[in-house]
Simulated scan of single mutants.
Amino acid sequence: PGAAMADVQKRIKHMMAFIEQEAIEKAEQIDIKAEEEFNIEKGRLVQTQRLKIMEYYEKKEKQIEQQKKIQMSIMRSQARLNFLKAQNDLVSELLSEAKLRLIRIVANQEFYQKMLYKLVLQGLFRLLEPEVIIRCRPQDHHLVEDAVKKAITQYKTVSQKSVNVHLDLEVHLPMNAAGGVEVYSSTQKIKVSNTLESRLDLLAHQKMPEIRKALFGANPNRKFLI
């Protein structure tokens, strides 16, 4: 019996050693598997975060680039507006200077008299009315009276029509006006402005492309000359 008991104990020890070894090996396999899964999950998380960071900075770069384009567009537009304003200011100064020089025309009485005749005659032809009213500066009354007499004669010869011209002695052009006349129909519903200022403005409007070309050169963006 003693030998049998010893044999059983030996077998039990052997089985326990085997079980313990199996447990150790199983534990090692679990550790290895867990390590592998941990490394895989860690790699996946790292890659996911890396992609998120890359997407974040790519989005930021695109936003910055878009903001730069918008800012550059705003700056170009502002620069163009400033450039156009400078051009317009220069043209305005030029026209203001031209209006001041109209005084020289009026100062030359002989030349101014001929101009008044043409301005009155043009007004008569543009209205083609049997009765007209003419207004001028108070200091130009005597000059306009002479211009009207000559203009009526020429008007009748060319149009074969009669016209009565009334020089308004109550309502005048402002004394500080450059000169010229305003011609009205008898009802004053139709007006022909032939003041020196209006003629200059009309000429400036018609010649503005040429004026700008002379001042600033040809516009490369202009496709048509008319």
Rank of each mutant, 00 (worst) to 15 (best):
M175N: 12
V165N: 00
L173K: 03
E131L: 08
A177E: 12
L84N: 11
R104S: 12
K156N: 12
P130V: 04
L169G: 07
D89G: 05
A151K: 06
V148G: 02
A151E: 05
N176L: 06
K150W: 03
L90H: 13
T157W: 08
N164A: 13
Q87F: 07
Q139N: 08
E131P: 05
S77I: 09
E182P: 06
E131R: 08
G123L: 01
L143P: 01
M175L: 15
L90S: 15
L167E: 01
I103T: 11
F111V: 15
Q154G: 04
K149I: 06
T157Q: 15
E145R: 08
D89K: 07
S162Q: 08
A86V: 09
L169Q: 07
Y112R: 03
A86E: 14
D140W: 00
R80V: 09
V132F: 10
Q154Y: 05
L167Q: 00
A177N: 10
A147M: 02
K118H: 14
V165S: 01
E145F: 07
E131Y: 07
K149V: 10
M115H: 10
V158Y: 04
R80F: 14
L128C: 14
R135A: 03
R101M: 07
E182M: 15
K161V: 04
V181M: 03
S92A: 10
A147L: 00
T153S: 07
K149W: 03
Q109L: 11
Q160L: 14
Y155R: 02
L121N: 03
S77L: 13
D146S: 13
D146Q: 15
R135T: 03
E145N: 09
E93W: 09
Y112H: 02
L119N: 01
A86F: 12
E170D: 15
L90Q: 14
D89T: 07
H141Y: 10
Q109Y: 07
D168A: 06
A79W: 12
F125Y: 14
A79Y: 10
E110K: 12
R135P: 02
V158C: 00
L167Y: 02
K161H: 11
N176Y: 07
V148P: 01
F111Y: 13
F125C: 08
L116C: 00
D168T: 00
I105E: 06
H166G: 03
I133W: 02
E182V: 15
A177Y: 07
L143Q: 04
E170G: 09
L94T: 09
R135S: 05
Q109K: 09
Q87D: 06
R80D: 13
Q160W: 11
Q122D: 10
Y155K: 03
Q122R: 08
L100G: 14
H142D: 11
E131H: 09
N176P: 02
A98L: 02
